[in-house]
Design a protein around this nucleic acid. Sequence first.
DNA 1: ATGGCCAATTTTATTGGA
Length: 256
Amino acid sequence: MKLATWNVNSIRARQESVLRWLREESPDVLCLQEIKVENELFPSDPFVEEGYYISLNGQKTWNGVAVLSREEPAEVIRDIPGGFLNHQKRVITVRFPGLTVMNVYVPNGGDVMLDRFRDKLSFLDELNDYIQKLSSSGSLIVMGDFNVAPKADDVYDPEYLEGKICFHPEERSKFREIISSGMTDIYRKFNPEGKAFSWWDYRAAAFRRNMGMRLDLILLNAAAAEKAVSCEIQVEPRKWERPSDHTPVVLYLEDI
DNA sequence: ATGGCCAATTTTATTGGA
């Protein structure tokens, strides 16, 4: 089984790229973030023709998440039930027999001095609670754009970026709490050493100079981690024409 | 050195991204 996460930075701007990627990779599940469109305006037809069910939690202009899946989900849960930030569409959870997949887009936070950064930390707390709740019932995969680079090898220049957005000690601490509660950062399980990035700024020729961060993560509870075979960051789509600033991260699981 | 770009809407500026 093959699952992937990709922050596409607008599905309407990236429709052809996502279709191309689906044809090349044929994943069973693809979690999309920042679709930046209301559910009614999501360009569903070509993805249905490609053989996918579409589960949506979109909104106008910003945020928005979607799951494409070969199998129709048995259940779809939108947002974090009771969550304080639910007016921003950042979470969608799809459940299949024996497997739950949560697709998340954590707030960026803007700048560590802003209220938005405090909201980001609170969101990570709520997310952890929600993960623990769902983790008690079978295999759980949480994948998406966490907007947190967990460790020094996940950013191009840890000294320069220390304390800046996406690499501030408080957000790394919140992320570690999720890991401490029993989730595995599966990319690092298979690739424990070395710089690895999934996002590169559009500005400053950041991609050409490989000035990136690993913000797109896949977390597995113990039941799911047992079945994990490998995990890869696919840098190639970041080189395509009109790319997203993020690139796909792919997880392979033993058949469930 | 730490900027530069990109997308959507509020559209010829502004906001957010990270």
